[in-house]
Nucleic acid binder design. Structure first.
Length: 422
RNA sequence: CGGGCUAUAGCGCAGUUGGUAGCGCGCAUCGUUCGGGACGAUGAGGCCGUGAGUUCGAGUCUCACUAGCCCGACCA
């Protein structure tokens, strides 16, 4: 990908009203474009990140047996009346056709998936079943805020599981919890599991996945030494107390919820009269679990968790590219041609070996190009210039490092491959 | 939804006691530069958020509305 061909441009300054890091940098670097409060378009660089996160999520959902599908965002009012949520869910966007017929714009998909699965599932032998989708969701939030962290339209992965017995549900629930932790780890962030405030006083399990960040909305008591964390809404521990798991001192902090899993029991299957025939010919109640990840929110949270004053610092697994090649300008046309040619050779060698490259071959001034590389935050920056060419080398600097060093042309591919694989 | 702040060129902003629109960046053309957003010259670009009102005259004063951001409440 050549920088000169990228239709988006970085901006010298972030939007004046952006306060959180994700709002600032995602817009300044041209990863997203704000259409309205809480509504963002995803642009080429941002979309690459979003797609990589989606891929990781797909892999982990498939690994626990999830089947991917894609549901409608436009939902029938009738189904929402059936579950008695039409008037109760205040974030529900309602819209009207030209004939006055009313619809819901999906904030979640129980009303769609339950009757859908019902139409295919008649025997206990058809269960358990887990289906998921990655789809745009709509919520009429009274206050959208913090860039892509809380939007009115956002991308979400939602999975629903169906079981004829509780034990089987609980086992799947645990598998989903582990899959979630793998997803966050693979995305380069560490998430902590907390019990949800809603689930704590009932028997139904319910958990949230929190990334620690000042931009978060939830108050947490957590241990920075181990995985222990509690939402202060239901916390039994306080900051300063020893961690019940490891004994280290607990701290008060903020977190952003990047996922939740919960037990729906038979709340929705009952509403739709969804049962299956059991071994004895009896009607069996169906238990549901629901498992959500805000995909666009997760991307924003990763920016919150990983940036410095110059820009974003993408984890390798989800960066818009593996390598950012910056070709500097030379004194004369002849050396410029040589540098461009050398850069192109490096680029082609990397690309043909499956390495993703963003090549800044623009004639812009050095300072601008280096600032852009920092802002965009690709994990590895390679500079090709007259100086490095003289040494038969490129300059190598990881986004997380302050010092650079030279790497010989013939060693670049191998070193990039091991850098990416790390 | 309550409270606060804001709205002037693509972006960031200035605009005095009310007198008819400016700066920086970016953009276009040319030239000089080239290891941290370099410089010079020329040029294009405005319904001053929208609508009413006060006034001889409104970017400026008044009111209403709309939009964005922040705090709070809310977040099935």
């Amino acid at each position: 990908m050549k920088m000169s061909q990228l239709f988006t441009k970085t901006k010298k300054s972030a939007p004046a009203d952006a306060e959180t890091a994700n709002a600032k940098f995602l817009q300044q670097a041209g990863f997203v474009y704000q259409e309205m409060a809480g509504v963002y378009s995803w642009l080429p660089l941002g979309l690459r990140v979003l797609r990589k996160v989606e891929t990781i999520i797909r892999q982990e959902m498939n690994a626990i047996g999830g089947q991917e599908l894609f549901l409608t965002a436009l939902q029938s009012k009738e189904n929402w009346l059936t579950t008695q949520r039409w008037d109760d869910v205040d974030v529900l966007f309602k819209l009207q056709s030209q004939t006055g017929k009313e619809y819901a714009l999906g904030p979640t998909a129980e009303e769609v998936i339950t009757p859908l699965v019902q139409s295919f599932t008649h025997s206990y032998k058809d269960l358990p079943l887990a289906v998921y989708q990655i789809q745009t969701k709509f919520r009429d939030e009274l206050r959208a805020k913090s860039g892509v962290l809380r939007g009115r339209e956002f991308l979400m992965k939602d999975m629903y599981s169906f079981h004829t017995d509780r034990q089987n549900f609980l086992e799947f629930y645990e598998k989903a919890k582990e899959a979630y932790l793998r997803i966050y780890e693979r995305c380069g962030v560490s998430a902590k599991v907390t019990e949800s405030s809603g689930g704590s006083f009932s028997k139904n399990p319910s958990h949230e996945f929190q990334i620690e960040t000042a931009a978060g909305e939830d108050d947490l008591i957590l241990c920075r030494n181990c995985t222990f964390a509690q939402n202060t809404e239901i916390a039994t521990k306080q900051s300063g107390e020893p961690c019940p798991d490891c004994g280290k001192e607990l701290a008060a902090s903020k977190g952003i919820e990047v996922g939740n899993i919960f037990d729906l029991s038979s709340r929705f299957t009952d509403a739709f009269g969804f049962t299956v025939t059991g071994e004895e010919g009896e009607k069996k109640t169906i238990y549901m679990g629901c498992y959500g990840i805000g995909v666009s929110r997760l991307v924003g949270s990763i920016v919150e968790a990983s940036h410095d004053e110059r820009g974003m610092i993408w984890p390798k697994s989800i960066a818009p590219a593996h390598v950012h090649i910056t070709t500097l300008n030379a004194k004369d046309k002849e050396s410029q041609d040589r540098i461009m040619q050398a850069s192109e050779e490096v680029q082609e060698k990397l690309i043909s070996n499956g390495i993703e490259v963003l090549w800044d071959e623009r004639s812009n001034s050095i300072g601008e190009k280096l600032a852009d590389a920092d802002l965009i935050g690709i994990p590895l920056r390679i500079i090709v210039s007259e100086k490095t060419l003289k040494e038969g080398s490129v300059e190598w600097k990881a986004r997380t490092e302050t010092e650079s060093h030279l790497v010989k042309f013939e060693d670049v591919l191998e070193q990039v491959q091991s850098f990416v694989a790390e």
